[in-house]
Amino acid sequence: MMDDALAQAVSLLASTLRLAVPLVLAALAGLFAERSGVVDIGLEGKMLAAAFASAAVAHVSGSPWMGLTAAVAVSCALAGVHAYACVTQRGNQVVAGMAINVLAAGTTVVLAYAWFNEGGNTPALPDPARFRAIELPLAAALSGVPVLGRIYAGVVSGHNILVYAAAMLVPLVSFVVFRTRFGLRLRAVGENPHAVDTAGISVSWLRYRAMFACGALCGIAGAYLSTAQGAAFQREMTAGRGFLALAALIFGKWMPVPAVLACLLFAFADALQGRLQGVELPGIGVVPVQAIQAMPYLLTVLLLAGFVGRAVAPKASGVPYAKEK
């Protein structure tokens, strides 16, 4: 019984981690954009386009790394378009972000039909064209050790390389944002771009760089969805993760670590709903699948509405920069 519970917990945590990865990457991507003063609701579209590019290129080339490169390139290109619209042309950031989402949702499906003719999806990738699970050293040996060994083997080990990459990106992004020159300027430009301009720093170039960082991270997130977690691109496969990541970012008050914790919370709810489907709950009975599937989203609404307190966004977020006059 005890053993069974541990097995359940290990598998639940492992799937939480797997589900959290795209959220974490997208939230960090959004952090760069929003800290620089660009509201990015286009995370979803960038991820989706990246997922398609990654699966398509991995399918053709047989290499997940080629897929990843393509994903980052496509996502960065979209980020560049977004930056051009929002920074250079000072367009409305929400409209531009939405345009990217619509563009990605339509283009990916159309191209998938045209190139692969599989109902808007890409063909299933064979294993060598995907990022596969990596067994960490000693995982098998330690799996016999009670609790800690089991956790090491079941939760820590056995993920693909992108999961570990995401885990390492969290402290890295924290360091960049809070301990480097680029980070200082990034935080400043989202609060008061005039101060940045008068300090002799280009506001536009700074925002472009932030958007490219955002694009790169969305690219990795997209590649993860279609070539690591999944084995093909499916239409609309991001399923609102970009928006969920944005919610996590707000919940985490635009700070990397709290935002990542929020992502883990959402992922945990997601993992839990997968396990609760069809399970008879004591005293309640079987809850309809739809209600359980809605759980992570309900959680988001509740958290954002009730527990965030006063989330203070970067002050210049959403405001195109113009010198006075």
């Binding site: 680029f182 200082l184 101060a195 300090a199 720093i201």
Partner: peptide, 13 residues
Amino acid sequence: ENILLGAEGGALL
């Protein structure tokens, strides 16, 4: 931080 902005004296703060 305000004084350093634009005159950071290196890539790391």
